[in-house]
C-alpha cells in the first residue's frame, strides 16, 4: 500500500513539475525582456545591477541600505509625485532658458516620447514633453511624468533612434522613481524625523525643502551614478520595446564622448563619465535579443527638426 501511494505521488510529481515550471517562467517573461535581472540566489535587483556593472560590495551595501530605508517609509503617492514634478518643471523652465514653444517640434517630441512611454512599466502615467530654450546639451525627467530636452540636445542628435535612446533613459528615471527614492533616502539619513508625518504637519516649508533637494539632484549634483547606469539599461530596453534600435543611445554617447572636456554643459557634471556609460551600454546591447527591422529613422528626424 505505501509503495502504491509512492508510485502515484511520483507519477503526479512528474506530471505537475513541468506545468509549474512553465507557469513560473511565464510567457510574458520570455517575450518581454527583463532589462535588469534579479541576481541569482535570491539577491536583490541592486545586487544584480551592481554585479553586472562591477560595483564593489561596500557601495552596494550602502545603496541597499538606503533603498531599504526608503522602502520602509511610506511611498509617495501619485498625486504627491506629480506635485513635486510640477514644481521641478517650473524650476527647469526657470533655469534653462524657458519654454521653447514650437508646436510642430513639441508634437514630434511627444509622439516619439509617447511611443516609448506606452511600453514602459508605468504606461498609465500622464507623460508630458517639452523643449527648453537652452543651447546646453541636456535632458531632464521630473517625477510624475515630465520630460524635458534642450534645443542644444536636439541639435546634437541625428536620428529618431538617438532621440528615443535619450528619452528612454529619462523615462527610466521616472519609471524607476530614482529621484523620489533618492529624496526619501537622503532626507532620512540627514534627519530621521524630517519625513515623519508629524514633522510634515508641523513644517509647511517641507515642499520647498524637497524641491530644493530634487533641484540640486537634477540640475547640479546629479543622481547616484549607479542610478544613471540603471537608467541607461532600462532605457535601452524601453527603446527597443518601442521598435527603435538600442544603438541610438550608443551612437549619441559616442558623439558625446568626443565632446567631453570641450563642453561646459552641466550634463557632464550631473552624469557619470561618458566612457564608462558607453562601455556598459555596449555590453548591454550585445546581450540584448537581436530583432530585425528595428528603426533608426534618420530622415523623419531631420524633416521634423526643420521646424526648429
Amino acid at each position: 500500500m505505501p509503495y502504491a501511494i509512492r508510485i502515484v505521488l511520483g507519477a503526479l510529481m512528474l506530471l505537475v513539475a513541468p506545468v509549474g515550471t512553465t507557469l513560473g517562467a511565464g510567457l510574458l517573461d520570455q517575450l518581454q525582456q527583463i532589462p535588469i535581472p534579479s541576481a541569482p540566489g535570491g539577491g536583490s535587483v541592486i545586487d544584480g545591477v551592481g554585479g553586472m556593472l562591477g560595483v564593489d560590495q561596500k557601495k552596494l551595501d550602502l545603496v541597499k541600505k538606503g533603498v531599504q530605508t526608503a522602502q520602509a517609509m511610506q511611498p509617495i503617492n501619485e498625486e504627491a509625485e506629480r506635485a513635486l514634478g510640477e514644481t521641478i518643471a517650473v524650476e527647469a523652465f526657470r533655469r534653462f532658458g524657458g519654454l521653447y514653444r514650437n508646436e510642430p517640434l513639441t508634437r514630434y517630441l511627444s509622439l516619439v516620447g509617447r511611443s516609448i512611454a506606452e511600453v514602459t512599466d508605468r504606461p498609465n502615467l500622464n507623460y508630458h514633453f517639452a523643449i527648453l530654450d537652452s543651447p546646453e546639451e541636456n535632458a531632464f525627467a521630473a517625477p510624475g511624468g515630465f520630460v524635458f530636452v534642450t534645443l542644444g540636445l536636439l541639435r546634437a542628435l541625428s536620428s529618431e533612434s538617438e532621440l528615443a535612446g535619450v528619452l528612454g533613459h529619462e523615462l527610466a528615471h521616472i519609471n524607476r522613481k530614482h529621484m523620489l527614492n533618492t529624496l526619501q533616502r537622503g532626507s532620512l539619513l540627514s534627519n530621521v524625523t524630517e519625513l515623519s508625518m508629524a514633522a510634515l504637519d508641523k513644517d509647511p516649508k517641507l515642499l520647498g525643502s524637497a524641491v530644493d533637494q530634487l533641484s540640486d539632484l537634477l540640475f547640479t549634483r546629479g543622481l547616484d551614478k549607479d542610478l544613471e547606469f540603471e537608467a541607461d539599461q532600462y532605457g535601452l530596453d524601453y527603446a527597443q520595446r518601442a521598435g527603435y534600435t538600442p544603438n541610438g543611445l550608443r551612437v549619441y554617447l559616442q558623439r558625446l564622448a568626443r565632446k567631453q572636456g570641450a563642453s561646459r554643459s552641466v550634463f557632464f557634471t550631473t552624469h557619470p563619465p561618458v566612457d564608462e556609460r558607453l562601455q556598459r551600454v555596449e555590453r548591454r546591447i550585445a546581450a540584448m535579443p537581436k530583432e530585425p527591422h528595428l528603426a533608426i529613422l534618420q530622415d523623419r528626424f531631420k524633416r521634423n527638426m526643420s521646424a526648429m
Partner: peptide, 19 residues
C-alpha cells in the same frame, strides 16, 4: 501605489488620499 505621504502635510492643508 503609495498613499502615505500626506501631500497636504507639505502645505498644512487637508488630506489628499492615495490614488
Amino acid at each position: 501605489e503609495g498613499g502615505a505621504i500626506n501631500l497636504a502635510a507639505l502645505t498644512g492643508g487637508g488630506n489628499i488620499h492615495a490614488k
